[in-house]
Amino acid sequence: MIPEEVIFPKEVNIKYTSKEFMEHIERFSVPINKVAMWTLGQNSWILKNEEGTIIAIDPYLTDYCGSKRTGVPTVKSRILPIFIEPEDLKVDIVLITHSHPDHADPYTLERLTIKDSAYFAAPFQAVPILKKAGIKDVKLVHPLEQWEWKGIKITGTFAEPTDFTDLNHMGFVLHFACGKKYYNSGDTAKTELLEHVNSFDIDWMSICINGGYHNLTHWEAAEITALINPKIAIPAHFDMMPHNIQPPTMFRKSLSMKAPNVQYYRLEYYEPSLF
């Protein structure tokens, strides 16, 4: 029998409505000295600290890259459900890694109801997309810039651009008050310059593994993970578009060979993971 964990892709069972899922996240009590994390697919994540601050990274909550407003599926249409509709997203901080629409999704951003209450931060080429969507106050951020919001230290990190359409990619390190540190790679091509993240002593990280559009392959992602040397590595950007998916077990195998001291971990949809 094939182990369930290696079946990919597999159908996602809808556990909550959009409003129910967001309410579940809002009500979820994060244990002391822990950070909770949920995946929404692609590079979309929600994190919540013990103080109750909720962060969204690259919320891709429509089918912009595929059917746009037509509703007609294409090869770029999402194979995952929309876990949270843009109107239902209730977070305190929104971080955008770059301007590509599966990260800075115009349709998600224009439908947000938190435009005036949440804190938005993005690199240069993504800022105009947020402002066009009606988000007036956006912090322009740069690699190695560090700032603090609601007790969370945020540092911009370098990412290698994957094509000429955006030369301003970034990642982020989040340093929580409990001492835990999380790194999100964003989209990046392979470069040894990513080793600069090693100095942050990362507890857990997520990294793109699918290789399409010049992103890291699962093998390259494992090599970069070895340079950064976190305790835990999570595959990202592998599960959204039918022509650009990658079984995450390939990353697990590559990680076992290139970074055997790093624990592989994959988040389950709808379920909080604690770090």
Rank of each mutant, 00 (worst) to 15 (best):
F176D: 01
E145D: 11
Y60Q: 01
P3E: 09
Y183N: 06
T70F: 10
K181L: 00
K68W: 09
Y64K: 10
E11V: 07
I82R: 03
G71K: 06
F158P: 00
T191W: 12
M1H: 15
A121M: 01
H24D: 12
I129Y: 09
L80Y: 05
P272I: 01
L167R: 14
T165A: 12
N49F: 03
V35G: 00
H103L: 13
K68G: 09
C178M: 06
P242V: 12
E4F: 06
W204Y: 14
D102V: 07
G212R: 09
T249H: 14
G179V: 05
L61G: 07
V141Y: 02
F120D: 00
T17P: 04
M257Q: 14
S117D: 15
Q263V: 14
Q263H: 10
K180V: 03
S67M: 09
D203S: 08
T217R: 04
E271P: 10
D163H: 13
M257A: 08
F176K: 02
T155S: 11
S99M: 06
G211K: 07
K180F: 03
E26T: 15
H98W: 09
V173R: 00
F176S: 01
W147K: 06
F200M: 05
H214A: 12
T62R: 03
K139N: 09
T113A: 05
A36W: 06
S99E: 02
P143I: 00
I202R: 01
A259R: 01
T188L: 04
I55E: 00
Y265Q: 10
K131P: 04
K231F: 09
I82C: 08
R111F: 05
P272L: 01
H196Q: 13
N33M: 07
H237L: 07
I46C: 04
I79P: 03
A121K: 03
E145N: 05
Y183T: 10
M241L: 10
Y60T: 02
H243D: 12
G66M: 08
T39S: 15
Q263W: 08
V94A: 00
P59N: 06
Y119W: 09
Y213G: 11
E271L: 05
R252M: 13
L144W: 11
I129V: 15
A126V: 06
H103G: 07
P86F: 07
A222T: 07
I245H: 01
K181P: 00
Q42D: 14
E23T: 11
A56E: 02
F200W: 11
N13S: 13
F275K: 04
S18D: 09
N168A: 15
L95V: 05
Q125N: 15
G71C: 10
D58F: 05
I202G: 00
L144E: 14
V12L: 03
K10H: 08
V127A: 02
V138A: 01
P86E: 12
T39I: 08
K76Q: 08
K76W: 13
R78I: 06
I135P: 02
S117K: 14
P81G: 03
E192D: 14
S44L: 05
C208P: 11
V197N: 04
A177P: 10
N229T: 12
F28H: 12
L109E: 04
P73N: 13
K34E: 11
P230Q: 06
N13A: 15
I114P: 02
D166F: 04
L95M: 07
L140G: 05
V173M: 01
